[in-house]
């Protein structure tokens, strides 16, 4: 994914998760989104699955796979790339 595409991905993440106070630049590509990172939780994970399907037409049918795929912006980007 180009840096432009990653930027768009980050803006989708911010929109879908209502991360009002977070700017794109603050989300590091390889940083963990859950736990300490942005402090996302399991509901956010489900919302990200919805986002990925809506914006990229890529399905994650088993949410337990979500943990690995949704770890960081990079892992999400890689997954989307491999599914297309």
């Amino acid at each position: 994914m180009s840096s432009e595409e990653k930027s768009l991905l980050k803006s989708h993440i911010i929109n879908y998760l209502n991360l009002e106070d977070v700017k794109q630049e603050e989300i590091q590509d390889a940083a963990s989104l859950f736990g300490d990172g942005l402090g996302l939780d399991s509901i956010d994970a489900l919302e990200l699955i919805v986002m990925i399907e809506r914006e990229y037409n890529v399905k994650i049918s088993d949410p337990s796979m979500g943990k690995e795929i949704l770890y960081s912006v990079d892992t999400i980007a890689n997954y989307i790339f491999t599914q297309k």
């Binding site: 998760l17 509901i43 956010d44 489900l46 919302e47 919805v50 399907e53």
Partner: peptide, 10 residues
Amino acid sequence: FERASPSNFV
């Protein structure tokens, strides 16, 4: 149904 938002539903 697939248009539902999990974070809204909770």
